[in-house]
Amino acid sequence: MTVTIKYFGLVAEAAEKFEEVMELHGAITASELKTQCLNGLAIADKDSVQIAVNQNLDDTITLKDGDEVALLPPFAGG
C-alpha cells in the first residue's frame, strides 16, 4: 500500500522535504510509521511530534492504502 507523508516545521527541515509517498508492506500503525520516518533524523525531542492521519490527530490507527499522514512538531516562535 502507499501512504503520503507530510512533514512540517523542523521535521520537514530535518527530512529535507515537505512530502513523500511511501510504499509500505504489512500492517503498520501511524505511531510505528512515525518512528520509522523520524529514525535517523536530527530531531532532539521526537516525542513532541504529533501525528495526524487524514487530517485527524491520531497515533493509534492502523494505516490503510491511500492514507495521508502528517508529522506535526510544536512551534514556539512569535
Partner: peptide
C-alpha cells in the same frame, strides 16, 4: 489536547 508533552525545543524567531 494537541501537545500533551512539553518540549525543550524552544526555538524562537
Amino acid at each position: 489536547c494537541v501537545f500533551p508533552k512539553s518540549t525543550r525545543q524552544n526555538i524562537s524567531c
